[in-house]
Design a protein around this nucleic acid. Structure first.
Lengths: 208, 208
DNA sequence: CTTCGGATATGACATTTGTCACATCATCTT
DNA sequence: AAGATGATGTGACAAATGTCATATCCGAAG
């Protein structure tokens, strides 16, 4: 199995090389220490798997991974990370990484590489355990705290579907002027300027 | 451990009750067969865990779960499902379910319940394996296929930030009229009516 | 009962937005 | 050279939008 190891900390990268090569199964073609280098080394060697740190100076492992996967979509990327990098778990999953394991669990690194080679995905227990929390939708915006009434909330939703005042009025059996008034007070309450910003607000703050 | 079992298929629900109670550890307070019933039974019994089917007539297990979690945020929900229900995996995670296991693996159901009681999350191997695929961002909208130019794409993005024509013009060093023209052709190309719909389009089709 | 706030409505008004027809200029094609 | 294309611009216009003042109705709070 030919792999490339990327870690911000060159010492770590070299240690990994040593450890992994001692298994006899794994051949570390080269080590690198930045996202840019990851891309370059991948282009040069086309390894079976990339073992890469996530948090690095400059380009993050995620960005590098995204770039590589864009060029070679069936690349197998295994992320190696510190326990505190929670935010990246979802990113790693979403770009299609094959695994995400913790540096602490170094005894599972070689087996994980084997698993990835076999086509499996490898996400450590602790990583999986965090998924539910991470997926939880962030507190949806607190309408009540901003004094937004039920009707107003309903209006926001229709605006966020792209309806015109006339259409909203028809749908809610209100006068068009009334709808405008609602929107006016809504814009006031949320410090926005127009319905487009209201829609943007909805998608970025409420439904995010 | 007191639980409630919900399954569309009453027979399955009752079988589960029998199997689980035979362990001696688990007490099935009551079984139900719809999402609505799930909510009702939860309110009445406050079980430690709800074991619930996902795909059901009427209200889905996800919707029922969401409703219950809204009322009682620390509810432990364990979903039981058929292998083909892929689409629901992410939903289950995102509402904060404690587990998602397959009906086929019925021998793991009781242990999973124990695990959930202990506060662990339980997602079967096969479920985890699918996560990377499911998280992959859907093809982001193909601007080129719709004949949308780079400049137009840039305009869309600014509209989607809630900028006015004047602001966009200033930012891109264009005349305001030019910006309007861009937006006009954009609306034409995408069969939309106004900038708000353009913003909505951006958030639902492009950046979704 | 009176008061108050929320929901609803109207009309007038200024501004923004979207459309259209057309014009200029540079580049690229033929 | 002639023509096509795309980026950019202008002016005029109609429609949609947002603001404001004001009014009615109703139910809840005092």
């Amino acid at each position: 199995m030919n792999i490339v190891v990327i870690d911000d900390d060159r010492l770590v990268a070299l240690s990994l090389k040593t450890i992994l090569e001692s298994t006899g199964q794994i051949n570390v073609l080269e080590v690198g220490s930045s996202g840019a280098e990851a891309i370059e080394l991948f282009r040069r060697h086309r390894p079976d798997v990339i073992l890469m740190d996530i948090r690095m100076e400059g380009m993050s492992g995620i960005d590098a991974g995204r770039a590589i996967l864009k060029e070679f979509p069936d690349t197998k990327i295994l992320y190696l990370t510190t326990f505190s990098d929670d935010e990246y778990i979802l990113n790693a999953l979403s770009i299609g990484a094959k695994g995400y394991i913790l540096k602490q669990d170094f005894e599972v690194i070689a087996p994980s590489l084997e698993a990835v080679m076999r086509g499996q995905s490898v996400f450590g227990d602790k990583v999986i355990g965090k998924l539910p929390d991470l997926m939880k939708p962030k507190e949806s915006f607190d309408f009540a705290a901003h004094g937004i009434t039920d009707k107003e909330r309903e209006i926001i939703e229709l605006v966020a579907e792209g309806l015109s005042n006339k259409e909203i009025a028809a749908k809610l059996f209100l006068g068009e002027g009334t709808v405008r008034n609602y929107i006016s007070t809504l814009l006031e309450k949320l410090s926005l300027r127009d319905r487009t910003q209201l829609a943007v607000f909805y998608y970025t703050e409420v439904k995010a």
